[in-house]
Structures are given as structure tokens and as C-alpha cells.
């Protein structure tokens, strides 16, 4: 009896880690934008939703090769991210930060509704049946493994970009001293554009991975949005490594919580853990005072 129980627990932990990969990817995008532009995009998960629809239409309806569909979704959401910055954030950059938060909140409503208008509230899926892998009496979905692997690769690419290129160095520097960037010959506006596009692109990549596992509908963002914000805050807003660790902690809590009860309780435990952690480390896991 004990042995079987342990296997379930192990399976839940591994599934949690696999799920954490995509969450880490999402929180990386959000953290990147926050670190550079100092704005939280409340509508981030809604961009993911549009990416999911893009893959669904291209691959599911028009029968385009899934990899090309995925690239299309990444490109489209990347442009969406750039538009969010140029059309909504940029005009109010100088005003109270809360206005920027709210403007993207308004965009959240807008994107949900536009999706309802365009695609109706029907749940749609690709209809792909990816195999389930069995490994010593534990079962893992192939889609999740794939998502985890691709998410990791995506994060490594971003890491290399940030550490090996001039633009990447500027992205890391800008949050430390915004004013001085001009002396380096950095056009802050351009850095914002690049960051918003990368943030969008990461949302697009996450969308490709999520659409393999979940149905898409106009309100699917609500399932990923709040948990992503919480991961970012728990890791320390703008702290990419902190977000990475927090993503896995929370996804494991959700997965284990879901093992003993319904999955909602998993989320409740994760949120409760987050609130408790805020009192222990209000600056985030790795944040500095």
C-alpha cells in the first residue's frame, strides 16, 4: 500500500515539474517586460489565448504543418506584444504606474471579448492524440514532456540572448539605471520594443505548448494568468531566476494538492502558500530589499 502511494506522489511531483516548465516560460516573459518597462501586463495570458487560437486555426482548420503554425503563432503574438506596448503602454508611460496596470486590464476584457466575437465561446482543440508514456508504473503525457522540453530550450535561448548580445546586456541594464542608458548610446524606446516583442514571442511559444494539452476558449487565460502573476511576485518581480524557481515550487504544490483532492484545491494551496510566503519574504524569494 505504502509503495503505491509513493508512486502516485512521485508521479504528481514529476507532473508538477513538467507543468512548471510552461509556467516558468510565461513568468520569464512577464518578468522581462516588468524588469525593462516597469509595467505588469495583466492581459499577458490573453495574449497566450490568441496564440492558442492561431495554432488551432492554422493547424487544426487550415491543415498547415504544425511547426509552421507554431512559428506563425509566435510571430503573431510577438507583434501583438509590440502593439500592446506601442499603442497602450507607451502613451501613458509617464503617468501613475497603476494606470498602466489598469490599461492592460482593460485590454484583458477587450481581448476576451474580441475572441468571443471572432471564435464564439465554444471549446476547441486540435484533436491531436499524443501518446501517454509509461515509466515504471507512472504515466506521463507526451504533450507535457514535449512542452517541458521546448519551454526549457526557449528559456535557454532567451538566457543566451540576454547574456551574449549587446541588446541583451542593455535589457538587463536598463532596470538598474534607466537614465544612464542614453550615455551608452542606447535608445530606450527601441529596447522597450524589443522586450515587448520578446515577451509576446514567449507568450506565443507558451501558447503552442498549451494548445497541445488544453482546449482553447476565450476565457482560457483566466486559468494561467493569475498563477503567472503570483509566480512572478513570489520570485521577486523582475527577477527572472526567482520566477523560474517559483514556477516549479507552485506547480508542484498544485500537482500534489490535486492528488489528494480536486485540482482547485491544488490552486488554493498554491495561492495560500504564496500569501504566506509574502509575509515571510515580502520582497520575493530572491528579491533584494
Amino acid at each position: 500500500m505504502d509503495e503505491i502511494f509513493d508512486i502516485f506522489l512521485l508521479e504528481a511531483i514529476i507532473n508538477g515539474i513538467l507543468f512548471g516548465g510552461v509556467l516558468a516560460l510565461l513568468s520569464l516573459g512577464l518578468n522581462l517586460i516588468f524588469g525593462v518597462v516597469d509595467v505588469v501586463w495583466i492581459c499577458y495570458a490573453e495574449l497566450v489565448m490568441f496564440g492558442m487560437y492561431t495554432v488551432y486555426w492554422l493547424a487544426g482548420v487550415y491543415d498547415i504543418n504544425i511547426f509552421i503554425a507554431a512559428l506563425g503563432a509566435i510571430a503573431l503574438v510577438s507583434v501583438l506584444g509590440w502593439l500592446v506596448h506601442v499603442l497602450i503602454i507607451s502613451p501613458i508611460l509617464g503617468t501613475a504606474p497603476i494606470n498602466q496596470l489598469l490599461a492592460t486590464g482593460g485590454l484583458l476584457f477587450f481581448l476576451q471579448s474580441v475572441a468571443t466575437l471572432m471564435f464564439s465561446i465554444e471549446f476547441r482543440n486540435l484533436g491531436l492524440r499524443l501518446p501517454i508514456l509509461e515509466f515504471s508504473e507512472m504515466y506521463f503525457s507526451y504533450a507535457r514532456l514535449l512542452a517541458f522540453g521546448v519551454a526549457l530550450v526557449g528559456m535557454v535561448v532567451v538566457y543566451l540572448f540576454l547574456t551574449r548580445t549587446y541588446i541583451g546586456a542593455a535589457i538587463r541594464a536598463i532596470s538598474q539605471d534607466r537614465e544612464i542608458m542614453v550615455l551608452m548610446g542606447v535608445n530606450a524606446k527601441k529596447i522597450y520594443w524589443v522586450t515587448a516583442s520578446i515577451g509576446g514571442g514567449l507568450a506565443g511559444l507558451a501558447a503552442c505548448l498549451l494548445v497541445l494539452q488544453y482546449d482553447v476558449h476565450p476565457f482560457v487565460g483566466i486559468s494561467f494568468g493569475p498563477i503567472t502573476f503570483i509566480i512572478c511576485v513570489l520570485g521577486g518581480l523582475g527577477n527572472m531566476i526567482g520566477g523560474f524557481i517559483a514556477a516549479f515550487i507552485l506547480s508542484i504544490i498544485i500537482s500534489i494538492g490535486g492528488l489528494y483532492s480536486e485540482i482547485e484545491w491544488g490552486y488554493v494551496f498554491a495561492f495560500a502558500f504564496f500569501i504566506v510566503m509574502m509575509f515571510i519574504r515580502p520582497q520575493g524569494l530572491l528579491g533584494k530589499k
Binding site: 546586456a169 542593455a170 538587463r172 541594464a173 538598474q176 539605471d177 550615455l183 551608452m184 548610446g185 542606447v186
Partner: peptide, 27 residues
């Protein structure tokens, strides 16, 4: 024209080499 600003204004959380690299950001 290169400006060494008052109080140095380095990027404190980045390595020395990254700081130097940023100095060469201009095309």
C-alpha cells in the same frame, strides 16, 4: 563624446565585463 557621469553610475548588479561591454553598445 563619452561621459563618465557623476557618482560613476555603474550597473551595480552586472559584472565588470558586462559594464564595459555596454560602453561599446553604440554601433
Amino acid at each position: 563624446i563619452a561621459h563618465v557621469p557623476e557618482n560613476r553610475r555603474l550597473f551595480p548588479g552586472m559584472s565588470v565585463e558586462d559594464n564595459l561591454k555596454l560602453g561599446a553598445f553604440a554601433k
